[in-house]
Deep mutational scan, measured.
Amino acid sequence: MEVRTIKVFTTVDNINLHTQVVDMSMTYGQQFGPTYLDGADVTKIKPHNSHEGKTFYVLPNDDTLRVEAFEYYHTTDPSFLGRYMSALNHTKKWKYPQVNGLTSIKWADNNCYLATALLTLQQIELKFNPPALQDAYYRARAGEAANFCALILAYCNKTVGELGDVRETMSYLFQHANLDSCKRVLNVVCKTCGQQQTTLKGVEAVMYMGTLSYEQFKKGVQIPCTCGKQATKYLVQQESPFVMMSAPPAQYELKHGTFTCASEYTGNYQCGHYKHITSKETLYCIDGALLTKSSEYKGPITDVFYKENSYTTTIK
């Protein structure tokens, strides 16, 4: 009895394709271990004539594949690729409408935090270190965002349907971005203890939790000093293409032309909904596939993004 075979390709990165001759009487799992086709788990399936010449994702289970996976995804987590594939199996079914010149995501599976993050990423200057993220990001900007969303979920250790947080998501993504040249110098002034300067680099240099107003941050924000008295913390120097200011959701007025974009969060910790506000020729609110415009805006804002380049204080 002759062994019926077909020729397929296996890959971990969709760049390096490895030619395989597979036995049609055995499952993919018996031949390769966990195997995925377009995100779908085909591990328990036997090869079919229609699979001839198709590319299958496999887990990096030998040295060659491990090197290829690390170079593309910059992670050695053995569960990463499987999590990416199972997320992709959902995100490829989502709709990605162009809204006001940006790629958004039609609401499904509690994905409003991903839509808000995706919209924000198209408006701030950011370059990702893992080629996987950078490639998928370019495709997302062009309207094909399924891979990018699935990668975000995998890097953030999230599953489809789980509630997510924009600030946490951005923080994970910033860790995989090139923020080497970003720098922030802060000064804390206390009447009792004097003053202390701190220099922050990388992710810490672009994120701040405690106030939404970048102007206020430049002037000074009140913080408790270690001595128990009130101290003032203010920005001395900022070198970065953008800054992200966050605070627990509270009524906040966004003035046209003073910011790049913002995240609105309605609801409580267990259950809520994100919308995205962007400042173009007027203010726009993007909620999944829905767009509304207004000249002014007041609502429960939790993150505001500002364009920056270089700032030095005039406070002496």
Rank of each mutant, 00 (worst) to 15 (best):
G39N: 05
H51S: 02
P34T: 05
C156Q: 11
L114Y: 01
K219I: 09
H276Y: 14
S279W: 02
E52M: 11
L163G: 14
F56K: 01
Q122V: 01
Y234M: 07
L153F: 07
D165C: 13
E264T: 13
I152R: 01
M26P: 10
S246D: 06
D23G: 10
A150F: 01
C261N: 03
K316W: 14
T198Q: 15
K307I: 12
Q98G: 06
V243T: 06
D303R: 02
T198H: 06
T169H: 00
D135Y: 06
G257H: 00
Q197K: 15
I152Y: 01
Y265S: 06
L212N: 01
T226Q: 13
Q237A: 09
K307W: 06
Q251P: 03
C227Y: 04
A142M: 06
K307C: 12
T292K: 13
E2T: 10
A115I: 00
K44Q: 14
R83H: 06
Q123S: 04
S263R: 03
D135T: 12
R4G: 14
A142H: 14
K158T: 05
C225K: 04
T232N: 05
L59S: 13
M244T: 05
K298P: 04
P249S: 09
Y113P: 06
T312C: 13
F9E: 14
I124M: 06
T313E: 10
Y306F: 05
P78Q: 08
R66P: 09
Q134K: 13
E264M: 05
L200G: 05
P130D: 00
N49Y: 10
G33M: 00
K95V: 15
N16K: 13
Q238R: 05
D180T: 07
N49C: 14
C112G: 14
K275H: 04
V206C: 09
T5C: 15
A115R: 07
C261G: 01
E2Q: 15
A262H: 06
A247F: 02
F242H: 04
H276V: 01
Y252K: 07
F128T: 02
L151S: 01
Y297S: 04
Y57C: 10
T55M: 08
G101H: 04
E2R: 10
R66H: 12
A40C: 13
Q20G: 06
K44F: 14
Y284R: 07
E125T: 10
Y155G: 01
V221Y: 07
Y214W: 09
R4L: 09
N111K: 01
T64S: 09
C285A: 11
Y96C: 02
H90F: 04
E125F: 07
S240F: 01
L163H: 09
K293L: 09
L126G: 03
F259V: 04
T292P: 04
S213D: 14
L254M: 10
A262D: 06
C227K: 08
R139K: 10
H48N: 11
S295M: 14
E239P: 05
F259M: 01
Q123H: 04
P131M: 04
D77W: 00
N61Y: 15
T116W: 03
F56V: 08
I223E: 09
G161C: 03
G164R: 06
C227N: 01
C285V: 15
H273I: 08
Q270F: 10
H90T: 10
S86T: 10
I45P: 01
Y284P: 04
D135N: 15
S246Q: 05
L291S: 14
L37P: 00
S310N: 14
N14S: 10
A69N: 05
L163N: 02
D77Q: 01
G257N: 10
F128W: 11
Y155E: 01
F80V: 01
L126H: 02
G82T: 10
V188Y: 08
P97D: 04
K316C: 11
A142S: 12
A262Q: 00
D23R: 09
M26K: 15
Y284M: 12
C261R: 02
V42C: 14
L37E: 15
G272Q: 13
M245V: 04
E264A: 14
G161D: 01
I277C: 05
E168L: 06
T103D: 05
G194W: 03
F56P: 00
